[in-house]
Amino acid sequence: MANFEFVLPPAPTKDIKVGLGDGDLVKRSASTVSPPAKALTPVAKLIDVSKCIGCKACEVACLEWNDKRTPVGVNVGSYDFPPDLTPDMFTVMKFTEWVNPETKNLEWLIRKDGCMHCEDPGCLKACPAPGAIVQYSNGIVDFDHDKCIGCGYCVKGCPFNIPRISEVDHKAYKCTLCSDRVAVGQGPACAHACPTHAIVFGTKDEMKKHADDRIKDLKSRGFANAGLYDPPGVGGTHVMYVLHHADQPQIYANLPKDPRISPIVELWKGMTKYAGLAAMGAFAVIGLVHHVVTGANRVSPEDEANAEKLTGDRR
């Protein structure tokens, strides 16, 4: 393969099983599910940051497909618009002007921000509402708005600061990885709209293979630290990045270097829950046992007589 040949992503896979239903759930918030009899092939969206031109076609496609609108805003000093994710904006291009200390070159880093669809989703772990957050066996993490109670626990669980709570209906919103499109064999709207194939979608294996080709190409162009962002701290993600500087993801608008579910959240949802229930139960049981063993603490007739004597003396 010639180094500088333009490598096209693989054609959309046709055998991605369609129709995501309750039978395809591997995780369900605040519930236990039995694993599906037949797991779907894991899918992934690969975002090649090195190929992104910042055109925002993906943002528009996302708004269109999800039937969302975002109000006209103001310039905040960069191309980021809106400046951050909102309940209506599931993806935002984050523009970073970075001077490479080695080459002194100004590099314009453009990262498409949005839900990473973690294999071990912190939002789902934190969610108290049964079934409000689900994970399908193909890896997609989805919010079920009928069941969402708007508590914002997912915001605390997420290592990437993704979910946003709507002030209109008080429910959490984020990228669905176009689960409704994937369910009928289509790729996500953003990938469909991307003019440079910076966003591609397919099975996770295919995407990793494609990423390898891209990383080889980038390395041949002098990006020695080019690599794949598929962070193991969250069990890998179903949205992955090809980064020219994979050794320092934080330069891409603070993409976390080693994301994982916060230990505070783990403690809250783990030990605290079990120890707390045990403690409350123990106190109630100790009270019951104590009463059975010692019996009621009753005032005796002598106590009453003593009180009468005391008050009588002073009358």
């Binding site: 605390k156 916060s262 809250w268 605290t272 707390g276």
Partner: peptide, 17 residues
């Protein structure tokens, strides 16, 4: 901040118990 909220939710749960 989100990290402060994480501490707050943990402390809230422990204090509630």
């Amino acid at each position: 901040t989100i990290d402060q909220k994480r501490w707050a939710v943990l402390i809230h749960a422990m204090a509630a118990v």
